[in-house]
Design a protein around this nucleic acid. Sequence first.
DNA 1: CTAGAGTCTCAAGTTCACTTGAGATCAAGG
DNA 2: CCTTGATCTCAAGTGAACTTGAGACTCTAG
Lengths: 149, 149
Amino acid sequence: MRSTDLLSIGEVSERTGLSVPTIRYYEQCGFVRASRTPGGSRRFARSDIRRLSFVMLLQSFGLSLEEIRAAMADLPLERAPRAADWRRVSAGMRDRLDQRIAELARTRDMLDQCIGCGCLSLSECALHNRGDRAWRHGSGAQYVLRGRF
Amino acid sequence: MRSTDLLSIGEVSERTGLSVPTIRYYEQCGFVRASRTPGGSRRFARSDIRRLSFVMLLQSFGLSLEEIRAAMADLPLERAPRAADWRRVSAGMRDRLDQRIAELARTRDMLDQCIGCGCLSLSECALHNRGDRAWRHGSGAQYVLRGRF
DNA sequence: CTAGAGTCTCAAGTTCACTTGAGATCAAGG
DNA sequence: CCTTGATCTCAAGTGAACTTGAGACTCTAG
């Protein structure tokens, strides 16, 4: 084991906490690309752990896999990302995170206000209308409006 | 129309932005309870709009319908909630919202730090381990770890 | 060399949160 | 009375994100 610094899918599973099938699924989604042994078993680079951890992090922010794919689009798949690559991607996330924090804080303040003044008219007051752009936007299937981070 | 202050499902749909089938679904979930006309059509109280708006709000925070059900559990279904009822429920949400904001802020700071120092070891550093309680918690099906707000 | 653990692929199942469809019924204007 | 639009119920379909199962192959310790 550890002849080179390549990892089996089981090792990656232990280090990330992701199940083995999930890692295969994520490879299929394009988040990582594993090389293969002559026999056909996947071998992952150490940097893939970082990649997968990042996927999990963005997921905890409420992003869908598709959004995560977009966010990580300019991390090179064919080689281990350099610090500069990570910096670029993470900086974008930082901005979105800031925005989301600000939005939640705004919502909290409005909640305080509505509760405090006793109006409670969530449907008419700013509290609900804060999301106007999103509701009823497209005509097609909407499905879940996830955390949207 | 508007003989009493009861609303048809279409009117509720227009005022909340929810589709008609979704409102029926939410009734089935127990978020609202509509009375019926002799003919069998649903009639909603005005306070049900507030209820549904609140559901949408919590959903935008990333809560699942089950979590929302739990959060709204002590809003009385059989009568229009009073200001005091809303205050109680909203106060609980306010706390969770505060916690979530703090958690996101912490994550942002750690992201800054990791990016800044160049370590980028999301898997070992505090950034990822921040969520330790959640990962690999139950042995059964986990499915999506949604926004978790 | 062999037993057992780990992997492989591919297909099908599952949960959540709805949406879509079919066919019947209700409600109100002309 | 008739038509048109809203509503009803019930069943089945959908998309996302995985999980589970079946059957075969690989790898490594003894």
